[in-house]
Simulated assay, not measured.
Amino acid sequence: MQPEDLQRLVDMEMPFGKYQGRRLVDLPGHYLGWFAREGFPRGELGRLLALMYEIDHNDLRSLLLPLRRRS
């Protein structure tokens, strides 16, 4: 993980699926859990979704609040 990855979670939108257009930070936990079970996409998106899953799973979403306020 790079420090700028946290800002990417706040800025980047989901490019496909049921939650297309929603920022990664706003994806629901059950959706992230589905990816964790079924497999994350390849590349940067998959890496960021896995990071967001870990943040959500460990109840650390509040750590992203300061970054949301800057956006």
Rank of each mutant, 00 (worst) to 15 (best):
Q2C: 12
E4C: 05
E4I: 12
E4V: 12
D5K: 00
L6A: 11
R8A: 15
L9V: 03
L9F: 00
V10I: 13
D11T: 14
M14N: 11
M14L: 12
P15S: 05
F16G: 04
F16E: 15
G17V: 02
Q20F: 06
Q20N: 08
R22C: 08
R23H: 13
R23C: 07
R23Q: 10
V25R: 01
D26T: 01
P28Y: 08
G29A: 11
G29W: 06
H30E: 06
H30S: 10
Y31T: 05
Y31Q: 06
L32I: 11
G33M: 12
E38T: 08
G39P: 02
G39Q: 05
F40Y: 14
P41Q: 09
R42Y: 00
R42L: 04
R42D: 09
G43E: 12
E44H: 11
L45G: 06
L45C: 09
G46D: 11
A50D: 07
A50E: 11
A50V: 00
L51R: 03
M52W: 02
Y53Q: 11
Y53K: 09
I55G: 00
D56I: 07
D56Y: 13
H57M: 08
H57K: 15
N58L: 12
D59A: 11
D59G: 07
L60G: 07
L60Y: 07
L60S: 13
L60T: 07
R61D: 09
L63K: 09
L64I: 03
L64W: 05
L64F: 07
L64A: 05
L65S: 12
P66L: 04
L67S: 02
L67G: 01
R68A: 09
R68K: 15
R70T: 15
S71W: 10
S71C: 14
